[in-house]
């Protein structure tokens, strides 16, 4: 039986062409930040909070839920280039990241964090956005390495996206080429501090100059 090589039927990308981050945020403005929990839950929380003295309950709930969220951030293994090797070293024996509760998980449907490690190229950007969209809320993104921060040493290339924040919103930027595992761990701990600042069970706090 003659076997022809498959002609790749590449479907047209279903991603949206975003000029930059502002357009992305416009689209997502209609979606409430934080947990996609029900309107009933939202209204109950608002009610408790507006009740005199109710802030005690919501603060305690915040503290508990934020502790739970930050202690179990599962990154999706999204290694693109050289930084992926340092990310693997961070996940491995010496700089163990599982002691922080982070279990690297291959499926984006079950993960909270996307560590973009490596150069984002124009061919890869729609795949990256697709994986990011598949992650359920609440989700965070860490841009690791100078290529993901701003295009890095390849910024002047024709096929390089000048920073992953042109594709997805980023919470923590970790500089370096590649950032050694100590730097990445520093970035992940900063991320945990950020997560601890969610207010009213799920809304992001405005940036705090002391910590962020």
């Amino acid at each position: 039986m003659a076997l022809d090589p498959p002609v790749p039927i590449v479907p047209a990308p279903i991603w949206r062409n975003f000029k930059d981050l502002q357009e992305w945020e416009e689209l997502h403005k209609t979606r409430p930040e934080g947990d996609k929990h029900s309107a009933l839950f939202e209204s109950i929380t608002e009610g408790i909070h507006s009740f005199p003295g109710g802030f005690v309950v919501t603060t305690a709930a915040d503290a508990f839920l934020n502790w739970a969220r930050k202690s179990s951030v599962w990154p999706v293994t999204f290694g693109l280039a050289c930084c992926a090797i340092e990310m693997m070293a961070t996940f491995a024996s010496r700089f163990d990241v599982e002691r922080l509760g982070m279990v690297p998980w291959a499926s984006p449907r079950h993960s909270d964090l996307m560590i973009v490690s490596g150069t984002v190229t124009i061919k890869m950007a729609p795949m990256l956005l697709r994986i990011y969209d598949q992650m359920p809320d609440p989700k965070w993104a860490v841009s690791m390495g100078s290529c993901a921060n701003s295009g890095g040493p390849f910024r002047h290339g024709y096929h390089v996206v000048k920073g992953v924040d042109r594709v997805i919103p980023v919470d923590v930027y970790v500089p370096g080429c590649p950032p050694p595992p100590e730097s990445l761990l520093n970035g992940l701990l900063l991320l945990q501090d950020q997560i601890a600042h969610f207010n009213k069970t799920g809304k992001k706090a405005p940036p705090n100059p002391k910590v962020d």
Binding site: P5, P6, P8, L80, A81, G118, T119, T121, K123, M124, M127, F154, G157, Y158, H159, V160
Partner: peptide, 11 residues
């Protein structure tokens, strides 16, 4: 198998 590469073409 058709191998598609080029996702890391950094010029």
């Amino acid at each position: 198998v058709d191998a598609v590469i080029g996702y890391l073409h950094r010029c």
